[in-house]
C-alpha cells in the first residue's frame, strides 16, 4: 500500500461485513467514505462513515473500541484480509489513514472463528479468552502486608521476558489471523507471563493444565506453527511463548 503524502484527504470504497445478530447470515455491503483526512485513525474513519449512515437514517456499523490508544485490546477487524490491517505491531485504532491511498477499496470483516461469536457487524464476543483467564490466568495472592520488593532475588532478563509476554492485550488478532483459529499465542503469552515470575511458579502446574483444557473446550483450533499470529500481533508477541507453553504443559503433564 503506497503512502499518500501529498494529499490531505482521500476517498475510499469500503466493503464492510454487516450482520444484524449472532445467528443470522451476514454479507459485505459497499459504502463510500469521502473526504477522509489522512490524519484520522481507522476507527475515526468509521465514525465519519457512521455519522453519514445515521443522517441517512440507516443503522451505523457496530465495532468495538475503548481506549483508542492501542493499549486496551478492544478494537480489531480484518482489513483487506489482515488482522488490524497491514501495518506491523499496530492495533486498528492506531492504524492511520495515511497508510491508504485515494480510491482504495478496503474490505473490513470481523474476527471469525468458532470460539468468537459475531455480536453484530464487526463487534465480536471474545469472552472465550476471559474464560481461559478465569481457568488459571492469575495468581492466588493471600492477603497480608506487601512483601519487600527485593525479598526474592530475580534476574532482570527473566523479568524482561515476562514483561514481553505481559504486553498481550487480549485483542484476539492471533486467533483471527491463525489459519486454524488457534489461541495458542494468547495462552502462550498468559502462561509465560506467570511461568517466568517467581510468584507464578507455585501454581504453574495447575495453571497450564487448566488453561489448555479450557482453551480446547472453547473450540479454538490447534496450532500448526504457521507463525501468522506472531506476524500479526499488535504487541509483537513471539512464538517462543508458544514453545514455553508447550514445555510447561509437558512438564506439568508428565512430571
Amino acid at each position: 500500500m503506497s503512502e499518500s503524502k501529498d494529499k490531505k484527504a482521500i476517498n475510499l470504497t469500503l466493503k464492510v461485513w454487516r450482520q444484524i445478530g449472532p445467528d443470522v447470515k451476514g454479507s459485505l455491503e459497499t459504502y463510500h467514505a469521502g473526504d477522509i483526512s489522512t490524519d484520522m485513525s481507522f476507527l475515526e474513519m468509521l465514525d465519519v462513515v457512521n455519522e453519514g449512515l445515521i443522517i441517512e437514517g440507516k443503522e451505523p456499523i457496530a465495532f468495538d473500541h475503548d481506549c483508542r490508544e492501542g493499549i486496551c485490546g478492544m478494537c480489531g477487524a480484518m482489513v483487506n484480509g489482515r488482522a488490524h490491517g497491514p501495518e506491523k505491531g499496530t492495533t486498528l485504532c492506531q492504524l492511520h489513514m495515511r497508510h491508504f491511498s485515494d480510491n482504495d477499496t478496503i474490505v473490513i470483516e470481523p474476527w471469525k472463528s468458532r470460539a468468537f461469536k459475531i455480536i453484530k457487524d464487526l463487534a465480536v464476543d471474545r469472552s472465550a479468552l476471559d474464560l481461559i483467564i478465569q481457568a488459571g490466568g492469575y495468581i492466588s495472592a493471600n492477603a497480608g502486608g506487601a512483601p519487600d520488593g527485593n525479598a526474592i532475588p530475580f534476574p532482570q532478563e527473566s523479568a524482561e521476558k515476562a514483561m514481553d509476554a505481559a504486553a498481550c492485550i487480549g485483542c484476539g488478532a492471533c486467533v483471527a489471523s491463525c489459519p486454524n483459529a488457534s489461541a495458542m499465542l494468547f495462552v502462550g503469552a498468559k502462561v509465560s507471563h506467570f511461568a517466568l515470575l517467581p510468584q507464578g511458579r507455585p501454581e504453574a502446574v495447575k495453571r497450564v493444565l487448566a488453561m489448555v483444557k479450557k482453551m480446547d473446550e472453547c473450540g479454538f483450533g490447534n496450532c500448526t506453527n504457521e507463525t501468522e499470529c506472531e506476524a500479526e500481533c499488535p504487541k509483537e508477541i513471539s512464538i517462543t511463548n508458544i514453545a514455553r507453553l508447550n514445555r510447561e504443559y509437558l512438564k506439568a503433564g508428565f512430571l
Binding site: 483487506n80 488482522a83 468458532r114 473450540g219 483450533g221 507463525t227
Partner: peptide, 25 residues
C-alpha cells in the same frame, strides 16, 4: 478436522502476513 471446524465461517478475503510457507500450508 478440529482445525477445519474451528472456523466454520471463512473470511471473504484472507491474506498471509508472511508467516506461512508452502510446506506449512
Amino acid at each position: 478436522i478440529g482445525n477445519f471446524y474451528a472456523r466454520p465461517q471463512r473470511y471473504v478475503i484472507k491474506k498471509s502476513a508472511g508467516g506461512r510457507t508452502v510446506g506449512s500450508r
